[in-house]
Nucleic acid binder design. Structure first.
Lengths: 109, 109
DNA sequence: AATATTTATCGTAATATTGCGATAAATACA
DNA sequence: TGTATTTATCGCAATATTACGATAAATATT
């Protein structure tokens, strides 16, 4: 009845799904692209770059932060965001091994 | 008001997000793992492998099929599913270039 | 022809996500 | 101290997702 059954799956399955879910929205992809390009960016500048309200962008930033892909540092009134390198590399290799684990052995139906 | 604003983002941003969203559930990761391992698998066997009802698994299979990651072939009453190699490689390289486009230049805040 | 098997789809309920405006909280500035 | 700036959070509405049982549709089997 709409209740998530995540306990029924492995830790690894949930982990990959969690990261993929965080990346499963164009606004969050756009935010990451900004951070990749500018390396470090003030929250307000990200808001200006996106076609969404300040509160909505703030929410997306929160989700990316919660999953660990980005981190924010308070600079006075402003907050500077950037990609968390360690986590980024970790997700990158997780995904790499997941996608790399498939090879077509000609048994496809 | 809860309305998706996907038109406001680029085609590429939407494309990556769409694939990531499809992978954003542990059941769908589990299904893909089964197909990676067995290469080709009858729907009923996938259902037996997962802690979910037949109808729920069928829905997850539909989502994976719609996004193109898997394909199903009817074999009498049964349906055999397998990973769509071409699409898989495409997503793999998409993700690879996305994750590879980040390099820490020491400008992080 | 009647029955069984297999899978997709429909209907429904519970929950989650998306988005916004309003407002709070915190620092900077006059 | 009062005011502006910046960001996070709350409350709400619209929509989407997740899950299941029931049932339909199609092929196999008896």
């Amino acid at each position: 009845m709409g209740v998530s059954k995540s306990e029924e799956f492995t830790v690894k399955q949930n982990k990959i799904a969690k990261y993929m879910k965080a990346l499963g929205h164009p606004a969050r992809i756009a935010i990451l692209e900004v951070l990749i390009k500018k390396q470090a960016c003030i929250c307000g500048d990200i808001v200006e770059d996106l076609p969404l309200s300040q509160s909505t962008v703030s929410q997306h930033l929160k989700e990316l932060k919660e999953v660990g892909l980005i981190k924010g540092e308070i600079e006075g009134v402003k907050v500077c965001y950037c990609i968390d390198e360690k986590e980024w590399e970790s997700v990158k290799s997780y995904l790499g091994s997941f996608f790399g684990s498939y090879t077509n052995k000609g048994k496809c139906c």
